[in-house]
Design a protein around this nucleic acid. Structure first.
Length: 561
DNA sequence: GCCGTTTTCGGCCCGACTGTTTTCAGTCG
């Protein structure tokens, strides 16, 4: 249901892991993974491009892609799927469990899923098994818990919501997604879609017949619930045209926000429901959200604020923040190229940035201490030398930057005299995720105090559903950011969405500035910005809080050591 | 399996950390 590129990339990734599980050559595993990444990051649709133009795709993978485009899969994948149970592959998603251990568990102990592994640990069946001590068992149990959370990140949910809405559009008059997705939460439990339709029964039938339905959970004349991939539930509701606004408020939530505004209605001697705002039997407002809020004596409240955490009081006082919008961004301060782990060239990334209308753009490839990236000063300087010509060609200001690694002690890759040569330095945690709160806090503060560090990248280092946030005394870290003029990044990658919104809001109270970045490793990733903006909005940020909405001169002033 | 200002074979993403071992395998970024 996603783009053909994303589907093919997912299949190749699956093939790579099955190939690794079955003892396949590690270099070939890497080739499949590399091709998957490259295909996912390729700007053109697979169906409409010369497949051989995609870097990392040679003749063998071209054959697999062609077979996929004809049949939806390729036979080598189907063969390995037949050899390795699906649950064994899921075992490798548990952190600290790779192909070797997973296959050993399966072949020697018959453990064929994370659930079976948990049961085996609880029954003590792993006691004495080579390579599985007490700490490993504890790590596995914690890892499985992370895996089995049913919420998905907003990127997955948004992809599904947009697909459903595209497919149902011919049968609807109006359609909007609501719920936590509309409130821009970073994880989504289920997707709510509201629609008006001339023939509701036909719409319900169409929902049940969507090709990617895994299960029809419930279906009636006004609502159909389906389960799709990732176990995600999608509810499609038909609502009357005349009460669409009231329904949108009701189904957007949050529940706490709705309770609060219903109380306001009650105090006015009225009643608010998903059908409208009523005085007795008279409906006084319902068609649009604006008219319902206005009738309650409130301005329209943006969905990301609707958590009953002060937005209603602020609205009453006329003090709602003017939230930063995606269109306010003048540039991106954290991006990669194929010089390190990106898949597009510098020129391709700059061209795409120019096409987005940016006034400035920073390229921030990784630094030498992330050894796998094989970065050197020579490579960085060669990249810098390419910028003036690209600047002239595309007519936007290019900033030469780097993404530094914050080492366990808070130091970063290069000495001051080298760092001084960069226009912008993002510094991020890429290792030692499990340090104690005290060590981690000191580590961040040391990084902030480095005068050449301008932005702390993806500060909590979390990966939604995969890796928890690092532990730090965030109040202390944010104070250090404010004191040293170090911005915090809001990384827009939907599986990161980092800094999370609650911490954004906390940091803002300390006077910290932010940078909403894509962390793009490919051209399509530049379009992830709305996720970061949604998080910024949930954190109550205005454009003035976000340094990459500023004109370039003001930004450069901020970037001075 | 891919790739080529070390071109059609022989490299390819290196090094640290973890948990376990008694010198190292597996995993990860």
């Amino acid at each position: 249901m996603a783009r053909a590129n994303d589907e093919m990339a997912a299949l190749l990734d699956e093939y790579a892991s099955l190939f690794a599980l079955t003892g396949g050559d590690a270099f070939r595993v890497r080739s499949y993974q590399k091709a998957a990444k490259s295909i996912a990051g390729f700007p053109d649709d697979l169906r409409e491009t010369d497949i051989r133009r995609i870097p990392g795709v040679g003749s063998a993978i071209t054959g697999k892609v062609e077979e996929f485009l004809r049949t939806g899969t390729f036979h080598q994948l189907e063969r390995l799927r037949g050899e390795v149970p699906e649950g064994v592959r899921r075992l490798t998603k548990i952190p600290t469990l790779g192909p070797k251990k997973a296959m050993m568990l399966f072949q020697d102990l018959g453990i064929d899923s994370p659930e079976a592994l948990v049961a085996a640990i609880e029954q003590g069946r792993l006691a004495g098994v080579r390579g599985f001590g007490a700490k490993t068992e504890a790590n596995i149990l914690r890892g499985v818990e992370q895996l089995t959370q049913t919420r998905v990140h907003a990127g997955v949910a948004m992809g599904i919501a947009k697909q459903v809405m595209r497919d149902l559009a011919p049968l609807t008059r109006r359609m909007e997604y609501a719920g936590s997705l509309r409130r821009c939460k970073d994880t989504i439990g289920d997707v709510d879609v509201l629609a008006t339709a001339d023939d509701p029964l036909a719409l319900m039938e169409a929902v049940r017949r969507l090709p990617y339905v895994v299960e029809v959970v419930a279906s009636g004349p006004a609502k159909t619930s389906i389960r799709v991939e990732h176990g995600l539930q999608v509810d499609v509701r038909v609502v009357p045209e005349e009460s669409f606004g009231a329904a949108l408020i009701y189904f957007t939530g949050s529940k706490e926000h709705n309770v609060h505004i219903r109380e306001i209605a009650v105090r006015q001697g009225r009643k608010l429901s998903e059908y409208g705002l009523f005085e007795g039997d008279l409906r006084v407002a319902a068609a649009t959200e604006e008219e319902v809020y206005h009738a309650l004596g409130l301005p329209w409240i943006p969905p990301p604020l609707r958590e009953d955490t002060g937005e209603i009081e602020a609205a009453r006082r006329g003090e709602l923040p003017v939230l930063v919008q995606a269109g306010d961004l003048r540039g991106d301060l954290h991006t990669h190229t194929d010089l390190t782990d990106g898949v597009a060239t510098l020129a391709e990334m700059v061209a795409a940035a120019a096409a987005r209308g940016y006034e400035y753009y920073a390229v921030t490839d990784h630094a030498p201490n992330l050894a796998m990236q094989r970065m050197t000063l020579e490579k960085a300087l060669a990249q810098r030398a390419e910028l003036p010509a690209l600047e002239r060609r595309y007519g936007l200001r290019l900033l030469h930057g780097t993404e530094l690694n914050i080492a366990a002690d808070g130091t970063v890759d290069w000495p001051a005299e080298i760092l001084a040569g960069f226009d912008v330095c993002v510094a991020s945690v890429h290792s030692h995720f499990t340090q104690s709160r005290e060590e981690m806090t000191r580590r961040f503060i040391t990084a902030c105090e480095n005068p050449y560090v301008h932005v702390i990248g993806h500060p909590t280092a979390r990966k939604i559903g995969k890796r928890p946030s690092v532990d730090a005394d965030w109040d202390a870290v944010f104070k250090a950011c404010a004191r040293t003029g170090t911005a915090l990044e809001i990384d827009s990658f939907p599986d990161r969405n980092d800094l999370p919104a609650d911490l954004v809001r906390l940091a803002r109270t300390h006077g910290v500035k932010f940078s909403v970045d894509s962390d793009a490793h490919a051209v399509p990733h530049l379009a992830n910005i709305p996720y970061g903006i949604g998080t910024a909005q949930r954190g109550w940020l205005t454009a003035d809080d976000v340094v990459n909405t500023w004109p370039v001169d003001r930004l450069l002033e901020f970037l001075k050591p």
